[in-house]
Nucleic acid binder design. Structure first.
Lengths: 173, 173
DNA sequence: GTGGATGCAAAGAATTTGCAACCAA
DNA sequence: TTGGTTGCAAATTCTTTGCATCCAC
């Protein structure tokens, strides 16, 4: 139902967006072709939208960013699945289980802090992130040593940000 | 079904159930009463089932463990939501997004490794877990210092376990 | 031109809600 | 007795599938 609050996902604080959007498109295009796929208009629009956001967003948000009338919701679902398979995007979950996607290709490991009140996405400072990253790597090394294959992980932090103003139910929609 | 096949979790014999389970029930009962709720039969069955499993399980699994005819699926949904609110259980997600629940009350922080092939749930060894726990605590301390409130996190590891035999699609169901 | 991608409709799966009957306190 | 809980049915929400059409290559 499109009737829900229009609240767009709050913008990420500092950090701007990757100036590498152009490169990203070129790179993904190559990957798609290599896989026997086609680089369509909706496809480009979605990647551009994801890159512009620069943080995990819902399917609905992508749909709106691309333009609800410019691309069917079903196409978003199908494309995200395909992109994930290609390793271009990564799927994560909001604290309430809502599915989120963001660009993973060429993206340095970043850790997100999601505000449970405003859904605003923040990031750990580089130093803290570095320490955490090290710990996680250590764990994964250990798992591989234990014989695990294709080791991966998922981690997210949640909290109510200091300047949370509008505790919204469906702000993320 | 997550860990094993049909086999119900080997229950402790005539002597009674694990002492911890007993305590858990008593403690939760008190919490429920304090909250103006009632300790019903399905309620006890669910907690017992969760405690017996001792690791994250699906709603469906709980339903089967309790006995599909002994309690409605809807009741599981409602109760898990209530238990989560009380802080008795914790919700997590399988790598494909499937919702999982497990006891969180009085539970030391444990980290799970989920096999993507068999859905079997394993745990990090205490030492590794301890290190990781320390890192995560450090991050959360930093977030609190930054002004975040109600800080929490979610972390899970995935991989294909060394002895993965039956790669199943819906083994967890 | 041709096969993969898209849009629309419809099916499925997962989760929630309404309400009368039920039972724990 | 009495209000919280349960079960059953129905409604919602989210996601996937079928298929004819369309367009990237």
């Amino acid at each position: 139902m499109i009737a829900s609050t229009q609240t767009h996902h709050p913008f990420v604080g500092p950090g701007g967006q990757p100036a590498a959007t152009k490169d990203l498109l070129a790179q993904v295009a190559e990957m798609i072709h290599a896989a026997g796929g086609r680089v369509t208009k909706p496809c480009i629009a979605m990647l551009t939208a994801l890159a512009a956001r620069g943080h995990p967003v819902t399917i609905e948000q992508i749909h709106r960013d691309v333009g609800v009338d410019r691309c069917d919701l079903v196409t978003i679902y199908r494309s995200m699945a395909a992109f994930e398979e290609l390793g271009v995007v990564r799927r994560s979950f909001f604290h309430d289980g809502t599915v989120l996607y963001d660009i993973s290709l060429n993206q340095p490991t970043r850790f997100h802090v999601v505000c449970k009140a405003t859904n605003r996405v923040d990031q750990l400072d580089p130093e803290t992130a570095k320490d955490l990253h090290r710990s996680i790597e250590a764990v994964q090394r250990k798992l591989r040593a234990r014989g695990y294959d294709g080791v991966s992980h998922r981690i997210e932090f949640f909290g109510i940000s200091p300047n949370a103003t509008a505790p919204s139910k469906s702000a993320k929609k």
